[in-house]
Design a binder for these strands. Sequence first.
DNA 1: CCCTTTCATCGTTTTTTTACGATAAATTTT
DNA 2: AAAATTTATCGTAAAAAAACGATGAAAGGG
Lengths: 109, 109
Amino acid sequence: MSTNKKEAFTQEEQELAELAKALAHPARIAILKELARRNVCICGEIVEVLPLAQSTVSQHLKELQQAGLIKGSVDGVKSCYCINYEAFKRFEGILEKFFRITENSQGCC
Amino acid sequence: MSTNKKEAFTQEEQELAELAKALAHPARIAILKELARRNVCICGEIVEVLPLAQSTVSQHLKELQQAGLIKGSVDGVKSCYCINYEAFKRFEGILEKFFRITENSQGCC
DNA sequence: CCCTTTCATCGTTTTTTTACGATAAATTTT
DNA sequence: AAAATTTATCGTAAAAAAACGATGAAAGGG
């Protein structure tokens, strides 16, 4: 990104992009909010609460888990998910750093 | 999102999702960083610096502009973009509020 | 005036995302 | 043991995103 083109994007840029992508759908935001609201983990209750099919919700949960923002565990026949607090802290840190960069610039348009 | 299903997602959820989507690509993050780095607005210099075709960069700029995160103006034959500081402030606020919600939950997995 | 530069837009292709129903595996319940 | 519940995964369809080259419009320079 500095002089020669060709070298793709930095690790940081990619990590931030991936985390942002996890938030880039209202359903996933709603899921995260719901997980946070009930401090006891939930599972198919999320399906009850969202206007989406069970398989679709399951998919969103998987994406959130792959992004690291939530943790999951199996409890009998049920599945239990919850906020990954550490991941959110890290996410916050990365964002804060990014926003700080944008603060130094005094737009001209 | 509360009881009856059907009612789609809230305004807030959608706004956050849209802003997050704007960050959900490393090229757009790189563009924002570049705009912030040069406090003088730039334009096709961004193309020089990214490993993407001019038309692709133009597209990313348009998306960032539509998300409100950057402002653009025409200067002769050149185009000039810069960080929209107020929008970033607002974005930060929305995120902060969202992260606060997640902080109250003590995961159980 | 032509020629060049700069950039947005169009048309297109490829890839990714979103969504759903169907199915299957694992557990409970009965 | 059979039936029902819960959930992940598969297959697929439709929509959106990403990327590129080509084209065209506007402005500047010669």
